[in-house]
Amino acid sequence: MTKHKIYTMSFASVYPHYVTKAEKKGRTKEEVDEIIRWFTGYSQEELEIHLEKKTDFETFIIEATKLNPSRRLIKGVICGIRVEKIEEPTMQEIRYLDKLIDELAKGKAMEKILRT
């Protein structure tokens, strides 16, 4: 079975789209970074290293060894698919992150996005 092309795309190529999506709705790059750090457990420095290295999305997720356990509380639809029903683990993690950025762009409070 061939991998989905998102796996081989660099996270650095997707990241600016996350930031643009947020900024168009009056949110900030700092909020995007906070969400990514909350989700992955990466420090800001580790996030920036992955961006500089142009780490592929699959590796970016796999190397996030401190994925936030509260991510399992993320529910809803992204790309027409319920994120909680996605069976392939890496794809589910990628879609969880997409869903968090969508929530940010829709104006949801950070406390709710971060499931606190």
Results as ranks from 00 to 15, higher is better:
E46M: 14
Y7I: 00
K85W: 01
Q44T: 12
T116P: 01
W38K: 09
T55E: 01
I113R: 06
L73T: 10
F60C: 03
P89H: 02
W38G: 07
K29D: 10
H17Q: 13
E63N: 13
Y15G: 02
Y96T: 09
I78Q: 05
P16E: 05
D56P: 08
G76V: 08
G41V: 05
K85Q: 10
G26W: 11
S43A: 13
T59Q: 15
M91A: 06
K99Y: 04
Q92G: 00
F11M: 09
A22W: 12
Q44G: 14
E103M: 12
V32N: 05
M1C: 12
E88C: 01
T8S: 11
G107P: 02
I61Q: 10
I86V: 15
A12G: 02
I113M: 05
R72V: 07
I36W: 04
L100C: 10
I6E: 04
M9W: 09
K112G: 02
K3S: 07
R95S: 07
M110R: 06
H17D: 06
K108T: 08
M1V: 13
P69E: 13
E23D: 07
R71Y: 09
T8I: 05
H50N: 14
G41T: 09
I36T: 14
Y96A: 00
E52I: 04
A12P: 00
R71Q: 10
M9K: 12
K108H: 06
W38R: 10
Y42N: 03
G26M: 06
Y7Q: 07
A22H: 13
T20F: 14
Y96Q: 13
E58A: 11
E88F: 02
S10I: 02
L97Y: 00
E23P: 05
K25A: 15
K29W: 00
E31I: 08
A64M: 11
T20E: 15
W38N: 11
M9H: 06
I6Q: 00
R82A: 11
D56I: 09
Q44L: 14
E34F: 00
E46S: 11
M1Q: 10
Y7R: 06
V83A: 00
S10P: 05
N68Y: 07
I61S: 03
G41N: 07
K106W: 08
Y96W: 14
I36G: 03
S43Y: 13
I61Y: 03
D56N: 15
R71I: 11
I49C: 03
Y7C: 02
L100Q: 11
S43E: 12
L104I: 06
P89N: 08
E88N: 11
E45M: 08
W38Y: 14
K66F: 02
E52W: 06
I94R: 00
T2E: 13
T90V: 15
E46R: 15
E30G: 03
M91C: 04
N68D: 12
D102M: 10
S10E: 07
S43L: 13
K21S: 12
L114Q: 03
A109C: 04
K75F: 04
I113G: 02
K112N: 10
F11G: 01
I78D: 05
I62S: 04
K24Q: 15
I94M: 05
I113K: 07
R115A: 07
E84A: 08
I62K: 15
R27C: 03
R72N: 07
K66S: 10
E34M: 13
T28L: 04
V32Y: 01
R95N: 14
I62Q: 12
K25S: 15
E48F: 00
I94W: 06
F39P: 00
R82H: 12
H17A: 05
E58T: 01
D102W: 05
E111Q: 11
